[in-house]
Design a protein around this nucleic acid. Structure first.
Length: 841
DNA sequence: AGCACGCCGACT
DNA sequence: GTCGGCGTGCTC
């Protein structure tokens, strides 16, 4: 009895213990979701989940009332959350992780540094084709519903459709009825218990499948059978010929596969190939085609470095022994690329990977071509014009370790590579490295150094005009510093001269905006069959349109800017929100027909130049002319083939655009660059003009540059003509120190946006009040509306915070986070959007 | 960031 | 009278 009892209790006890253990061994996963919400989200794991879950794996999870989101497994733990009930993971989307642990660490670092959520980083860093969103489907659950007379026409239509196909998507349902009544109709059907809504995930990425052709496997290495087939074809000469051609092609291609389409291009016809296939001579099969395959076939040796280059190369290597970052300051055409190539070669020889960052536009140009030429299919190129499918393939290939080198703009930083040995940031001064439109507002140059540090890689910053920050860091010994101040082949730097526009106007030495000196020079160049580049940093025809009689200027209805006149499309456009209207025939204010334009854009220069040089082939290069995926490549090709005599461009032409046949560059008006209300204006103007000048005389002879300006005496312009980089920087750094700007402080810009101006200003003022006690007056500026105070119907105001060198940036950021949260506890302030921009440019 | 719930203007 | 506008609150 006692035994029985004790046995019984022990069984009960064991059950209890098992249950207890089970409870205690409940596991949870932290999931990163693509939401702008702080932190990760906790889901509980079943035992089977636990078997297959891996950090970095893609999962789908329910979030909110019904939606499924794609998330990434961040971590696994046993801490049961007390404040809310966890849900289960819906599904594992892949067997293996698509994100590495290093990437997760990197994302967290970025979220912390740039004061945004981990979800913001994930959303931006991960290809969107891999972020599945659930689609809502309608499912029939009561096919036997009988009281049909109670259904309205729309309900009946959906019911009938579902009887044929059990499941339809909400979109299909909307097609059956009309768009507007779809949701109400479905609601009624749900209420009647006839249908149910289901969420389904669909993969957005689709592999590209092509038809390929090869010699039939049965004939391969079987000479006798092959001869038989060939003899059978004696009466079909075309087929015989094609078969023999295929053999030749296959030998040439070695292991590469031959697409049917490519075979057709080589002379075979589809009909012939089909007949051959029917006779068993060839085989047509399907295979996945890579969208990111390299075309490059002949790999060439890297050319020998010159003495100067070798010297620089050795210095870089020496500096890398003690410093993780080196700044290579080399004038345009000094041959920085060759040095990069040599370094890359050495790094990949050690089985390390290289990340090569370029400003956006340069990714499509010659540099990429040159790198591919040396490293062939080991080069992965990322570009923002890639479509979603191409991005996915690049991601997967990178994850597989298929590439030794990844080249790309700032987003390439997020590809899943490992084992980096070297990061190159070319044109490091370029402001396009800073992401400004979507969160995270990161600076790719800075994050490249960080990522390099995480993987023990070295970072090489390259520029002809280094940023003030990098120059400062180099001069202070934080980075290694190597100068390369001689052009390749010892060609002299272009001679830069200034043209005084005031004087030219007074002496009538000018036609519209082209001074006669500039005109004569262009004429001279064209006579020598040279191509000319003209720089005007404004697109459109004229930035302002003005009524001659009343002075009215058409403005954007959504933004606080005047509309730019585009003659080509005969429209007035807003460059901030995209608003466009037809050019009005008369002034909307007074009805006058006399409308004037003020200021000049590329379109107007194009027209003026074409008038002066009616025979010349004039082209324009700005975002308006560069629409479409291959517009840029096409233009480069045309320029190379000398189908363009004069190219007029915005700052686009300063990036990766080097051609041997250009000996002269003209700047139409430098003034707009100099008078920018920004503490970086002088730095940017010097860099831009120097870069523009660098386009001239790159190969055989010394180039010439003419800069037109109303203030030729301006110190920056004077310094540009004499290539006085160091003195310019000295002045700039002196001012920065005086006014406590970077690199002598760190900036955080808080940008407030709201459609109601009063509420906006009140909120910004309130946050300043909350922050006031923690900063001295010099370090907390604003709120102040930026020069364009309203974009897309949202009013904007900025608060600037300067962090002194002795302050902890982390503590300041924590403070900002806390104060914004505090502000948001009050409902009235909550609707104002606050963007935190760390290290604004 | 989505998405649902809830309260006020312009329409059949 | 409704439809639908977007303000507000919540999501593991």
């Amino acid at each position: 009895m006692l035994n029985y009892l004790s046995l019984n209790t022990s069984v009960a006890f064991l059950n209890l213990l098992a249950q207890y253990n089970k409870m205690n061994t409940t596991y949870f996963a932290e999931i990163i979701l693509p939401l702008s919400l702080d932190g990760t989200f906790t889901y509980h794991l079943s035992e089977t989940d636990l078997q297959q879950i891996k950090i970095g794996q893609r999962v789908s999870v329910p979030f909110g009332t019904q939606k499924l989101y794609t998330g990434i497994v961040h971590s696994i733990h046993q801490n049961k959350p007390e404040l809310y009930k966890t849900k289960a993971i819906h599904a594992f989307l892949d067997d293996e992780p698509l994100v590495t642990q290093t990437q997760i660490n990197f994302w967290e670092w970025i979220a912390n540094y740039y004061v945004c959520s981990l979800g913001d980083v994930f959303r931006n860093a991960f290809p969107s084709a891999l972020k599945l969103e659930s689609q809502t489907f309608v499912r029939l659950i009561n096919p036997n519903y009988e009281t049909i007379e109670e259904l309205n026409d729309y309900e009946f239509l959906v019911f009938e459709a579902l009887k044929l196909r059990e499941i339809i998507s909400v979109e299909e349902a909307a097609l059956i009825v009309d768009d507007k009544s779809a949701i109400p109709t479905l609601k009624l059907l749900i209420d009647k218990g006839i249908i149910r809504l289901d969420e389904k995930l669909s993969e957005k990425y689709t592999p590209k499948i092509d038809n390929y052709v090869r010699l039939h496997p049965d004939l391969k290495g079987n000479e006798q059978q092959f001869m038989e087939v060939l003899n059978q074809l004696s009466k079909a000469p075309k087929q015989r010929e094609a078969l023999l051609q295929l053999i030749t092609l296959e030998t040439q291609l070695q292991d590469k596969l031959l697409k049917v389409a490519d075979f057709v291009k080589q002379g075979a016809t589809n009909a012939v190939i089909k007949s051959l296939a029917e006779k068993g001579a060839v085989e047509i099969y399907q295979n996945q085609t890579s969208r990111v395959e390299n075309e490059e076939k002949d790999i060439t040796e890297i050319s020998q470095l010159t003495l100067k280059q070798t010297e620089a190369f050795n210095q870089i290597k020496e500096e890398f022994k003690t410093k993780s970052t080196v700044l290579l300051h080399g004038v345009t055409s000094s041959g920085k690329t060759e040095i990069y190539l040599k370094l890359i070669e050495q790094v990949i020889a050690k089985r390390n990977k290289v990340l090569y960052l370029l400003p956006e536009i340069s990714v499509t140009t010659q540099i990429v071509h040159r790198i591919k030429k040396h490293f062939g299919d080991k080069v992965g190129v990322y570009h923002s014009k890639f479509n979603q499918n191409e991005r996915v393939e690049l991601w997967q290939k990178t994850l597989n370790g298929d590439f030794d080198i990844i080249i790309g703009p700032r987003t390439a930083l997020f590809l899943p590579f490992d084992n980096l040995g070297l990061v190159i940031v070319d044109e490091e001064h370029e402001s396009s490295y800073k992401q400004m439109d979507i969160k995270p507002f990161f600076h790719a140059r800075d994050m490249a150094m960080l990522l390099g540090g995480m993987m023990n890689a070295k970072t090489l910053l390259g520029s002809a005009t280094p940023s003030a920050e990098s120059y400062y860091n180099a001069k202070n010994g934080k980075y290694g510093y190597i100068e390369l101040n001689e052009r390749f082949g010892q060609i002299k730097l272009p001679e830069i001269n200034l043209i005084d526009l005031k004087k030219a106007q007074k002496e009538k030495e000018i036609t519209e905006d082209i001074s006669h000196t500039l005109r004569d020079e262009i004429f001279e160049q064209l006579n020598h069959k040279k191509q000319v580049i003209l720089f005007q940093n404004r697109r459109g025809y004229a930035p302002i349109m003005e009524c001659k009689s009343c002075g009215h200027t058409p403005e954007c209805p959504n933004c606080d800017v005047s509309l730019t006149y585009h003659k080509f499309s005969n429209q007035l456009k807003c460059h901030y929100c995209g608003y466009a209207q037809a050019k009005p025939l008369r002034c909307v204010s007074c009805g006058s027909h006399e409308l004037n334009t003020k200021g000049i854009g590329t379109e107007q220069i194009e027209q003026q130049i074409q008038t002066i040089f009616p025979e010349a082939k004039v082209r324009r290069m700005d975002v308006d002319a560069m629409r479409g995926k291959f517009a840029y490549e096409k233009l480069i090709e045309d320029f190379e083939n000398k189908e363009i005599d004069i190219l007029i461009g915005t700052q686009m032409i300063t990036k990766g655009f080097d051609f041997g046949n250009v000996n002269f560059v003209g700047v139409i008006r430098a003034d707009s660059l100099l008078n920018f209300p920004d503490f970086r204006a002088h730095e940017k103007a010097f860099q831009l003009l120097t870069q523009v000048a660098g386009r001239a005389g790159r190969r055989d002879e010394q180039g010439k540059v003419l800069i037109q300006s109303f203030q030729p005496e301006h110190q920056i312009l004077q310094n540009v003509t004499t290539y006085s980089y160091a003195p310019t920087m000295k002045d700039i750094l002196y001012e920065r120190k005086e006014f406590l700007y970077p690199p002598y402080s760190r900036l955080i810009k808080l940008r407030f946006k709201h459609k109601n101006k009063e509420r906006l200003d009140k909120t910004a003022e309130q946050l300043v009040i909350l922050l006031k006690s923690n900063f001295d007056a010099r370090c907390l500026l604003g709120p102040e509306a930026p020069s364009i105070g309203r974009i897309n119907n949202l009013y904007i105001t900025d608060v600037m915070i300067k962090i002194r060198p002795n302050q902890s940036p982390q503590k300041v950021k924590d403070l900002i986070r806390a104060k914004i949260n505090q502000l948001h506890t009050i409902a009235a302030f909550r609707s104002v959007r606050i963007d935190v921009d760390v290290d604004p440019v």
